[in-house]
């Protein structure tokens, strides 16, 4: 992302340079808005609103209390954020959960209660219900839902949201390598469809800005 930004900046610079080179004696470059087009990088926005939203996956998994949790039934008509990650993850997974937790606290109380934040483990072998119950309140918030189950079910659910995850693998030295999804998917309370994606680069401020709209099912 850093690299991309630099590239974008370089491209923008190059564009500006070539534009000003072409524009000798003419109007200042950008008078027609062409420079503005180049330097308005759409990727700077944290949210990607999907043209074709995702159906909510038909997932029944186990929550942190060890009871079955039917995703469609439990989150029906509620604004919902879903993330696939694992607890033996020192950086991105707790960061993502913390970012959402910080932003959620800025919502009015009623909206906080409506917003469902669902963390689905990609490493169910290590992430038991008990492990998730320990980790999730610390990494995110006690209100967050943590789900575990058998890997093929989780993988199929992720795939329905365009998120590719592979099972954890054991390296030769016995270390276990797991992977997390790279996106948070937001579901609208109006349509129950996943209509916005958030990348790993999304900041607490980005979430804080968008969540008031997400809880209403509006485009951020």
């Amino acid at each position: 992302m850093r690299y991309k930004t630099v590239t974008a900046a370089a491209l923008a610079l190059a564009a500006t340079l070539s534009l000003s080179a072409c524009g000798t004696g003419g109007e200042p470059a950008g008078a027609d808005g062409s420079v503005a087009d180049v330097s308005a990088p759409a990727e700077d926005k944290a949210a990607t609103v999907l043209d074709r939203p995702f159906e909510k996956p038909d997932l029944v998994l186990t929550d942190t209390t060890g009871k079955p949790y039917d995703l469609r039934e439990r989150t029906k008509g509620k604004p919902t954020l879903i993330y696939f990650g694992y607890t033996h993850c020192p950086d991105v997974c707790p960061l993502t959960m913390s970012n959402i937790a910080v932003a959620r606290k800025q919502l009015p109380k009623a909206d906080q209660d409506r917003l469902q934040v669902v963390f689905v483990t990609t490493d169910p072998e290590r992430d038991t219900a008990a492990e998730l119950a320990k980790w999730l309140p610390a990494a995110g918030d006690p209100s967050f839902v943590g789900l575990t189950g058998d890997f093929p079910t989780i993988q199929a659910g992720a795939r329905q949201l365009g998120i590719g995850i592979e099972p954890s693998t054991e390296e030769q030295d016995g270390k276990i390598v797991s992977m997390h999804g790279t996106q948070v998917v937001a579901f609208s309370p109006k349509t129950d469809q996943g209509y916005v994606l958030y990348s790993e680069d999304t900041t607490p401020d980005d979430f804080a800005e968008d969540l008031p709209k997400i809880v209403k099912g509006e485009n951020p």
Partner: peptide, 10 residues
């Protein structure tokens, strides 16, 4: 650790 595409490797 190196981190790439959701996977980190020692």
């Amino acid at each position: 650790h190196e981190s790439k595409d959701g996977k980190m490797r020692q």
